[in-house]
Design a protein around this nucleic acid. Structure first.
Lengths: 135, 135
DNA sequence: CGTTTCATGAGAATCATTATCAATTAGCTT
DNA sequence: AAGCTAATTGATAATGATTCTCATGAAACG
């Protein structure tokens, strides 16, 4: 029974991390891959996937399931809700809400344990509403 | 400017509908396809996909995005939240909650329109807790 | 610095979902 | 009841995201 894993500090992992730090909105693996290539510090697509998956498991990024593909975003553990514009993907973090309490009480009512919950609110942001009107 | 669509009543669509009526938990397209084949009333996979997609657009089924694939479940329009057991997939419908109001007020605050939201609460149900203990 | 082991990258493989298109059928119309 | 027409189906191929394979490269650590 020795240690199960020894995560190493590599150039690629740092690059992915740094890239996400500079992003406001959710990024797909492809986004990160393209972005890093554009910066002149390319990281292979499989490695981007591996890194993002690992970060999601370690709760370092939020994992958003959209229709076609997943997107990731650096996120502190306290923030777990987002208001997302379906047009431009701009994201606003919501730090307060009634969901936590509600989820807990509902789960307790039904005897569930190890509760987790996901709430995503989406809509069209003011900027995109204007753009739609003017074209 | 005539009518935009004329949905027809077909054997396949009825079969998919009936199949979902008999299910308690979320079903993937593959599940439905396999299940109907097992019943001796097969429906092709593309048609299952088409039907489920259409039903989701018409709000006839709830659409759940999981890691690998989507799952669907018949659902009345009023019910839009679920408590799901991560082990056995048993699902409990939640008819009341603070989320609707909260989502609206949050969206209004930020000027968003065409609001939609998704909330899924998951955990381990009592039955599966026992099973885990006893093995 | 040498060794060991984990990480990377190029490419192939997988898996869910969607597009193509000829053959079929539902819903009129007569 | 028979015919017409457009929507629907199913077999198949195509797409697109994600994962696997495996040879090469680079951390960690003595």
């Amino acid at each position: 029974m020795t240690s199960t894993d020894t995560p190493r500090r590599t150039r690629q992992r740092s690059l992915v991390w740094e890239y996400l730090s500079d992003c406001e909105s959710f990024q797909t693996a492809q986004d990160v891959h393209d972005g890093l290539k554009a910066r002149g510090t390319p990281v292979s697509l499989p490695t981007v996937y591996r890194t993002l998956t690992a970060m999601a498991e370690n709760q370092v990024v939020d994992h958003l399931l959209t229709d076609g593909q997943s997107a990731y975003r650096l996120c502190s553990p306290e923030h777990h809700h987002h208001l997302i514009c379906r047009v431009c993907r701009r994201t606003i973090e919501l730090t307060q809400g009634p969901v936590e309490q509600w989820a807990d009480s509902v789960a307790r009512t039904y005897g569930f344990t190890e509760i987790a919950h996901v709430t995503e609110i989406s809509g069209v942001c003011p900027r995109c509403q204007e753009l739609t009107l003017h074209r």
